[in-house]
């Protein structure tokens, strides 16, 4: 009976195992191999050693800048996005009449945040004669060239990135709902102030969620493609030419598959190092109430 059960468990896992081999492990390894080749899809891949890696850090004018811009975008977006998401989750966790109406209302923009339609609408809102400039003019200000100056264009992308707070907010809210109310009551009976409760009880108890959201969002934003592609097209003067966009152009416009793979490995290593550093630091600031077992 026991051994039969073992066998059954693995049977249910077969689709996932096949999939992981084909769609994850195989491409993961082969992209590393391709990164040491020149491959244009027509002639056979040609081994070139570290040439791709050397090129991107020396003669390529775009790669290092794209990394800088990507990191800038990520550093500007993720903290604001997460604080905003936590703030919204916090006020949606109020025990009030009609709170479900507000929850639904708040989910709407967040759920749509990743839609292409939203990126296109964003482009329109920040158009030279778009809504944002119209509002500025109504209040007597001068219209701003949102998409024609580098720092403004980055700002427009960052604002959209922050507006995509949806999944982080939902995950924060579910964590907040799991905090036992008697903890709050005990603190209140002890005379703790609201802010004290927030920073001494709420925040420590949701640190696992903060950690999860932080890793996920860093991962997402370092790979951001849609908003620069759709809104700024990398410009002006390549100031929003994020690494994902550069990789896409090299792979699917210039057909330099090997070079694009090498770039994606550098991006991957940056993401992995960041994630590992967060994991390493997590035992200092992440609080697991059930002794680390999730």
């Amino acid at each position: 009976m026991k051994s039969k059960k073992k066998y059954i468990g693995l049977i249910f896992l077969i689709p996932w195992m096949i999939g992981t081999l084909i769609f994850t492990i195989y491409p993961f390894i082969s992209s590393l191999i391709y990164s040491f080749t020149n491959y244009d899809l027509i002639s056979k891949p040609k081994f070139v050693g570290f040439a791709n890696y050397i090129e991107m850090f020396t003669t390529d004018p775009d790669f290092v800048r794209s990394l800088k811009v990507t990191i800038e975008y990520t550093i500007l977006t993720v903290p604001i996005q997460l604080i905003f998401a936590l703030f919204l989750a916090f006020i949606l966790n109020f025990k009030l009449k009609g709170i479900n109406f507000f929850r639904t209302a708040y989910y709407v923009p967040s759920i749509l945040g990743g839609n292409v339609a939203v990126a296109i609408l964003w482009k329109f809102l920040f158009n030279k004669t778009g809504l944002v400039n119209q509002v500025i003019q109504t209040f007597g200000g001068k219209p701003v060239g949102w998409l024609s100056s580098s720092s403004n264009a980055m700002f427009v992308l960052v604002i959209l990135g922050v507006w995509q707070f949806g999944s982080a907010m939902v995950i924060f809210l579910s964590a907040l709902q799991q905090i036992p109310t008697d903890l709050y009551e005990a603190a209140r009976v002890d005379g703790a102030k609201k802010w004290t409760i927030f920073f001494k009880i709420t925040i420590p108890l949701i640190t696992p969620t903060v950690f999860f959201n932080l890793v996920m969002q860093l991962n997402n934003k370092l790979q951001e493609f849609n908003s620069p592609y759709l809104i700024t097209n990398g410009g002006p003067t390549k100031s929003t030419y994020l690494t994902s966009l550069l990789i896409y152009d090299n792979a699917f416009k210039n057909f330099r598959m090997g070079y694009a793979c090498a770039m994606s490995w550098v991006l991957f290593i940056i993401i992995a190092v960041l994630a590992l550093a967060l994991f390493k630091s997590s035992n200092r600031w992440v609080y697991y109430s059930d002794g680390g077992q999730n």
């Binding site: 994850t24 491409p27 993961f28 790979q223 994606s264 991957f268």
Partner: peptide, 16 residues
């Protein structure tokens, strides 16, 4: 795989 960036597997999958 939850944390594996899609960017690293995208090109070989396309080639496949």
């Amino acid at each position: 795989t939850l944390f594996l960036p899609a960017v690293v597997t995208r090109i070989p999958l396309y080639i496949m």
